[in-house]
Write a protein that binds this DNA or RNA. Structure first.
Lengths: 158, 158
DNA sequence: GGCTAATTAATTGCGTACAATGTACTAGAA
DNA sequence: TTCTAGTACATTGTACGCAATTAATTAGCC
């Protein structure tokens, strides 16, 4: 006889926990970043650029795990709002270099200070925060490595 | 003097870890659910309905943490594909009752079995899986409780 | 009953996500 | 040099996610 189908409850799912937590953080940052009119993906784009600017769209995408289909319109909006500049590379015209605007450079301390103030609301000490992140990253690596396409559909018959 | 602005590195952020893990799980499930032509939000909608059907759009939304702006088009697509039925309540015509189709009831064991097979790929034992979920949920509750809107923008001057 | 406030979905508009495709460009082989 | 891959970005199409608005209905109050 087939293995009895284990029931799957929504609230017991790790994926649902991550999905929900990610959405909540998204809303949290939407509020925290509202004074600067930045969205969360725009904020992480700035974080990446503050660490290293300029970068090509490709380099940027590898840091924030987004492809050009997402980044191109996002960066155009950020350009319109004066956060970044987009310049096609003179040597290799396939590439577009993304650099921080003066506004973004100037706003960095202010944004950091405000975001840090908001983070204090979480009431998580540094140890808990770091442990949580490490555990999430551990699971994340496992998910990344797994490839469901290799699971034969007939496996349900086991 | 002002508190020195602590630097914020992308890879050290809990939010980024959750954001990335959530996207990876999304892709994981996109592959795992491909044989059934279901997306991840559609799958959690089915999970909720398998636990309790029918439900109104509002009840369903409170289980999966989505509002009608997301659910209405999602449910219409699921109706088109034969997973659910949508019927306006006869007593209170403001409400729409969502119920499982026979197809969804019949497919449950098959979907559970296949998803469980895919989950085995993660190579996480039950203890690790549950601990990870509990830690994520703990952080999630903290995020939910925090309200950045109450942080005065002048806090950066501290 | 008739008026008003609250409730519930649906709609609209904007911003991601990402697969698939298109286009411009570069570089290496014949 | 011409052909051919390969690379990098842009575009298109589909599907969320959610705030804000609208529309329909119900319920409370006089």
């Amino acid at each position: 006889m087939a293995t009895p189908t284990k029931n799957i409850l929504l609230d017991e799912q790790l994926c649902f926990a991550l999905y929900t937590a990610s959405k909540r953080f998204n809303r949290f940052y939407a509020d925290a970043l509202a004074p600067f009119k930045l969205t969360y993906p725009q904020y992480i784009t700035l974080l990446a650029l503050w660490e290293n600017s300029p970068m090509t769209v490709r380099e940027l995408g590898s840091h924030v795990n987004l492809d050009s289909g997402t980044l191109t319109p996002l960066l155009k909006r950020m350009q319109t709002q004066g956060w970044v500049e987009r310049k096609r590379d003179e040597n290799d015209e396939r590439q577009v270099n993304i650099s921080l605007s003066q506004k973004a450079i100037d706003a960095k301390p202010e944004i950091f200070a405000h975001v840090n103030s908001c983070m204090d609301l979480l009431g998580m000490d540094e140890k808990t925060y770091n442990e949580t992140r490490n555990i999430v990253n551990f699971a994340s690596e496992r998910i990344k490595a797994a490839d469901p396409k290799q699971v034969k559909f007939s496996d349900d018959q086991l």
